[in-house]
Nucleic acid binder design. Structure first.
Lengths: 136, 136
DNA sequence: GTTCCTGCAAAAGCTTTGCAGAAGA
DNA sequence: TCTTCTGCAAAGCTTTTGCAGGAAC
């Protein structure tokens, strides 16, 4: 998605397309690595020397409320952000700490839904050892 | 489960059955309310005047490692503890903040498993508005 | 008697808040 | 020009760590 498209997208959702917000969303769409607030900060402070962690959190909250990103709390210590809004689960490797996406079918997701509640969001978090770490 | 049974259970898992550990596990088995560390602390400090938050965390980690309780991080702000080890998901009401269990069938759970990974733990977190809050 | 556990005090670390200046409309 | 956003500094809070005294065996 180009920066222009991101700008339009933000406007559509009623969000003022500031440089920082565009950059954050662009980064998350380009890097599907589920970065932490700190990683995001370190990456973007190069582009915006005055960039701050406060802005990371402010922006993330704004984008999450608009349904443009998801805040992942698979890691209890810190938040991670993900621009992937399609249905998927997250797998955290307990060895290397990496987080991978894995697909979940529409049917499998529906089978999860609690009968008497109407979930608005649904997160599936798995932990284990990833194939790469298993080989070592 | 009686305190005697809990004591035996802890011994079976190679955990020294101290007063505090027995009390924590007993509380979690009796109160399936997914308490926070603070709630657990406030409840048990009445029984043990010198009880501390440090012990809550120490004990929770020990019990979790032994597979006797689960640490729930559906709420990003603080950890919650759950003695229910059978397969189930957690639903958090965004209105009242309560957390409810909901059943997940063996089949539905297996459908989730990522093909190339071997998950050791799997957590399903849903959020929305609970029936009680919807009526208001 | 040894080993392991508890819990006080302090630190650590992520996230939020207050607010003045800057950017966007 | 007016509103909204950014970002520095400081605070807030949950959780962890160090370590001395105590409990369990």
């Amino acid at each position: 998605m180009t920066k222009q498209e991101i700008t339009s997208l933000l406007r559509t959702r009623g969000i003022q397309p500031t440089q920082q917000r565009i950059a954050v969303l662009d980064y998350l769409q380009t890097h599907r690595t589920h970065p932490t607030a700190d990683t995001l900060y370190r990456a973007l402070v190069e582009e915006f020397p005055t960039f701050s962690r406060t802005t990371v959190y402010n922006t993330a909250r704004t984008l999450a409320k608009a349904g443009l990103i998801r805040v992942i709390t698979i890691d209890a210590e810190e938040q991670r952000f993900d621009a992937g809004m399609e249905q998927h689960g997250h797998f955290r490797c307990t060895d290397c700490g990496s987080i991978f996406d894995f697909p979940i079918s529409q049917q499998a997701m529906q089978n999860l839904s609690p009968a008497s509640y109407t979930p608005v969001t649904m997160e599936v978090y798995a932990t284990g050892v990833c194939p790469h770490c298993q080989q070592q």
